[in-house]
Design a protein around this nucleic acid. Structure first.
Lengths: 106, 106
DNA sequence: AATTTGCGCAGCCGATTGGCTTCACATATA
DNA sequence: TATATGTGAAGCCAATCGGCTGCGCAAATT
């Protein structure tokens, strides 16, 4: 059972759930109302999202409110950082090339 | 056949390929050397990454160099923006609450 | 106490995934 | 021209995915 954050957000329903819950913590039933999917299937998604720490359940009587753990989202951002860094490097090298060319012109 | 960027980066091999290619455009054979996977399987991954515009193939004789299309990566960032916005709103509301509390104290 | 409500779990099932092997084909190279 | 090399496409297969239904259980309501 792979259970990383990237596999979690691969599913469009799960991404939509995250957006919903981001605005306001919600119960499985309330979430299910927004989809053409049985409540149990939503539950399965919530389990996956919880297992990789994107959501956190908070019990309140017989209801369970699922809340977004925004910090976990930052992991995606961190992954993107690699590319920002690499691209920055590329531009730096490009700048050097351009600088060299400019100097040669003189 | 789902083919969106989130499904593309769900696979760890594909994420590694993206990082490799980000540094420098590479041929399928060169990429395959970095994995314990047959070249043909890598080809399949390259096809998927190309189909959702994360990579671009550049033919050079009988070799094909796959290059990262960094712009496409920004789509992930754009998706994350939703959450940044929502969180910003939450903090704004929290600030208001704190402000009200402070005033009540007086 | 009986019923309703909110929920998760287990198990079924067709579709998809991500490996693999075998092949065909075009471009170097001998 | 014959051979070696770089590549993608097709098809196989076990594992996983994402729906579904049918439970059981605890909390709330009657």
């Amino acid at each position: 059972m792979r259970r990383d954050i990237f596999q979690a957000i691969a599913d469009p329903t799960r991404r939509a759930i995250l957006v919903l819950v981001a605005v306001q913590a919600m119960t499985p039933n309330a979430i299910a109302e927004h989809f053409d999917i049985k409540r149990q299937s939503i539950s399965k998604h919530l389990r996956i999202l919880s297992e990789c720490d994107l959501l956190v359940p908070r019990q309140e009587g017989r209801e369970i409110f699922y809340e977004l753990k925004i910090d976990k989202m930052k992991e995606i951002d961190t992954w993107l950082d690699q590319f920002r860094k690499i691209m920055e490097e590329s531009f730096k090298q490009l700048d050097e090339v351009l600088f060299t060319l400019k100097n040669k012109k003189k």
